[in-house]
């Protein structure tokens, strides 16, 4: 989509994302200053931080929804100037279009890409089944529970075959049990995809469960910025004691 050098074999591979001295804020108020971060293709990077630390703001900048005040966001070496099909986003809640059925919501990214009707229907149906909602295709979002709506959002974001998935506290509004189920589903789905994942949460355990690397956003000298970047050994492997790492993250927060 961007560089002609990218050959067909790499078309669905994860996106390399780089933040170069990025400063972000709304209006005259800077929330974050001088962010430097390299996100490797295919990795799961989790950004943790307390509420108000600007986690979502970083994600919006990577998505291309918010222009940096200074610095550059690079995707595959090309500066990000706006949103693109390459970088799909999953929002916290209520981002489904309420007037579209489940099927038509999931079809939307394919429709925008100009995929023919029959093909997009097949793709959407298989994604809906993949997130465990087969049979719910014709329901409206208002007829679904919060957890089901987030499943649809996950299916919708992945249906467009993005090279990066940006997730903004996607399970933040769910109860603990539904949340655990969604985390299992996400781990399951991520196993089959090469896409880079940037996941924002305030939940340290969620971060340790999903991440290759954990980035802690914190406050340093008045402005927010990137604290420490911690690698998670043997990521996404169950029954590993991560108490030490957990304590270090909490200390950083």
């Amino acid at each position: 989509m961007t560089a002609p050098a990218v050959d067909a074999a790499r078309a669905d591979a994860g996106l390399a994302i780089r933040l170069e001295g990025v400063s972000l804020g709304y209006g005259r108020h800077a929330v974050l200053e001088d962010l430097r971060l390299d996100i490797a293709p295919g990795e799961v990077l989790v950004i943790v931080g307390p509420s108000g630390s600007g986690k979502s703001t970083v994600l919006r900048a990577i998505a291309g929804l918010l222009a940096p005040r200074a610095g550059r966001v690079l995707a595959e070496g090309v500066p990000v100037t706006g949103p693109s099909t390459d970088r799909a986003m999953v929002f916290q809640d209520d981002a489904l279009l309420p007037w579209r059925t489940v099927l038509r919501n999931v079809e939307l990214p394919l429709r925008i890409r100009g995929v023919p009707r029959r093909e997009r229907r097949t793709a959407a149906e298989s994604w809906i089944a993949r997130v465990g909602l087969a049979g719910c295709e014709d329901r409206l979002p208002r007829e679904l529970s919060g957890g089901m709506r987030q499943r649809v959002q996950l299916a919708r974001s992945l249906a467009g075959a993005p090279r990066a998935v940006l997730m903004d506290e996607p399970f933040g509004a769910l109860d603990a049990q539904t949340r655990a189920g969604m985390q299992r589903l996400l781990l399951d789905v991520l196993r089959d995809t090469l896409a880079t994942v940037v996941f924002v949460t305030h939940d340290v355990d969620e971060a340790l469960l999903l991440a290759d690397r954990v980035v802690v956003l914190g406050h340093r000298g008045g402005h927010g910025g990137i604290g420490r970047v911690l690698r998670v050994p043997d990521p996404r492997t169950p029954d590993i004691d991560r108490a030490g790492l957990r304590a270090r993250i909490i200390e950083e927060l």
């Binding site: 929804l65 799909a88 986003m89 929002f91 939307l108 467009g160």
Partner: peptide
Amino acid sequence: LWEDAVRTMGGGRAHVLWN
């Protein structure tokens, strides 16, 4: 939020208007 969602799917002005 809905507009942001459609834009991150690669939708342009016409898509946002129509959808």
